[in-house]
């Protein structure tokens, strides 16, 4: 369990060192009044392919709630949120980053989870064990994973 949580963080540190980029911690993210986040969270460019993987699996699991035609080879897309087809026509990169990091800043009271948030939870559990969480809280997605998902979303154009 530990390993699973820390592995992505370790990978992230390596890539940050390699590119000399600095990461913005969850508590330091600045959202504008509409919920957009202008600055890259990792300081490094996002990886579209990895973003596509995160849409499907692990803590991202975006298609649990959203239809994405581009990912129609994967089974079972949910219907809770709107289809993400054409998301990049509707939103700028900064807006998408804000929505993925903390959708409630863009859509108040949204059902969409906040993927780059570490405090203010009620009865926070240790992943899916049902037990209480102990120690530092890792966000659902790392800074680089957010950038990867945003990079993938930026490819969703219809116009």
């Amino acid at each position: 369990m530990r390993k699973l949580i820390f592995a992505p963080v370790a990978a992230l540190c390596l890539s940050a060192v390699a590119t000399g980029a600095t990461e913005i911690a969850p508590l330091d993210v600045s959202f504008d009044e509409y919920g957009a986040v202008a600055q890259s969270l990792s300081g490094a460019p996002g990886d579209v392919d990895n973003g596509a993987k995160l849409m499907n699996k692990g803590a991202g699991n975006c298609i649990a709630c959203h239809v994405v035609t581009e990912l129609s080879h994967l089974p079972f897309h949910g219907e809770i949120g709107p289809s993400l087809d054409g998301a990049a026509d509707r939103w700028s990169e900064a807006e998408l980053r804000g929505i993925v990091a903390n959708a409630k800043k863009t859509f108040p009271d949204s059902m969409m989870p906040s993927f780059y948030k570490v405090e203010g939870f009620v009865r926070l559990g240790n992943a899916f064990t049902g037990k209480a969480h102990q120690g530092d809280v890792a966000p659902l997605l790392t800074a680089q994973q957010i950038e990867d998902v945003v990079a993938f979303l930026m490819t969703l154009k219809e116009e």
């Binding site: 699991n61 298609i63 649990a64 709630c65 089974p75 079972f76 897309h77 949910g78 219907e79 809770i80 059902m111 989870p113 906040s114 939870f121 009620v122 009865r123 926070l124 559990g125 969480h133 809280v137 659902l140």
Partner: peptide
Amino acid sequence: YSRTGQLELSCANCHEDNYGNMIRA
């Protein structure tokens, strides 16, 4: 109606606001 956990979801989010919809499978 309390939104719990890291996903911040309440019973109502799924079973009042979204019954009839698919959540994943």
